[in-house]
């Protein structure tokens, strides 16, 4: 592999994909578990980028111990939303507030979601959360940045009261769709210290990500559930 920073390579992949019409793109992510060091930068980067409230983590990192002392090792598994091709969450939403967009991202329409939480129950990965209106700093209004617009989905939503979306709504990782539209990679990809997160257009045979996942040492989490996730793990 060239010694170019992978961010640069993926960035050009992204620009190439954005030139295509949206329904020809298919966004996917690959995470190299050999390189993930369990630093949790992706978790906090995502919290910062999407201004998520307490207890909502779009991309937590699971740490698993393998083996017994002294033959012991660890595996770190970051878990964004899998953006499944056959999701269990979208069929159950009664008002079609969550649906799979034509570019592969499963989005939530904050204006439609009624907060029934059926999708939280139905997700096999526990990737969805509900925003009930907690603030980190009690009810510190005024100086708080927590009511500012995070720009999710390219729209403006200010979490002012519990009658303002996204409070009351389901929320989840959306591959930073607001960043993609502007030509930037997802936050977790750009902040990953181990350079373990890859992002790109799965429909593009020249992209870095497609080359990485076409190998035998690649798996998808809970693939046997038939959800066809678009997040691949390289081991």
């Amino acid at each position: 592999m060239e010694d170019r920073d992978i961010l640069e390579i993926m960035h050009s992949d992204l620009q190439r994909a954005l030139k295509k019409p949206r329904n020809q793109r298919r966004w996917g992510m690959a995470i190299d578990l050999k390189k993930c060091v369990g630093c949790h930068a992706c978790t906090t980067g995502c919290m910062s980028e999407n201004l998520t409230p307490p207890d909502i983590h779009y991309r937590p990192v699971k740490e698993e111990e393998i083996g017994e002392f002294p033959n012991v090792s660890m595996r770190f598994l970051p878990r964004p939303c899998m953006q499944c091709d056959a999701p269990t969450c979208t069929p159950v939403c009664p008002v079609t507030a969550t649906y799979k967009r034509d570019d592969g991202i499963v989005v939530i329409d904050y204006k439609k979601c009624i907060g029934c939480r059926y999708c939280l129950v139905a997700c096999s990965y526990g990737a969805r959360s509900v925003d009930v209106g907690h603030y980190y700093t009690g009810d510190m209004k005024g100086e708080t940045y927590e009511v500012e617009n995070s720009g999710e989905y390219g729209k403006s939503f200010k979490r002012k009261t519990h009658w303002h979306s996204p409070i009351g709504n389901a929320r989840k990782c959306h591959f930073c769709s607001h960043r993609i539209e502007k030509g930037e990679l997802t936050r977790c990809t750009t902040t990953c210290l181990g350079h373990a997160t890859y992002f790109g257009d799965l429909n593009d045979p020249q992209s870095l990500i497609v080359k990485l996942i076409a190998k035998v040492n690649v798996f998808r989490y809970k693939e046997e559930m038939g959800t066809k996730p678009l997040v691949y793990y390289i081991v």
């Binding site: 961010l7 919290m47 910062s48 201004l51 940045y145 210290l193």
Partner: peptide, 27 residues
């Protein structure tokens, strides 16, 4: 108000990446 932070790719110390704490700047 500062709403987000991103790494500066020109900085050799981070090369555009911020660690788990750097991202929590707003905290």
């Amino acid at each position: 108000k500062v709403v987000k932070v991103d790494g500066n790719p020109l900085s050799e110390r981070g090369r555009g990446r911020l660690c788990g704490r750097g991202n929590a700047a707003l905290g």
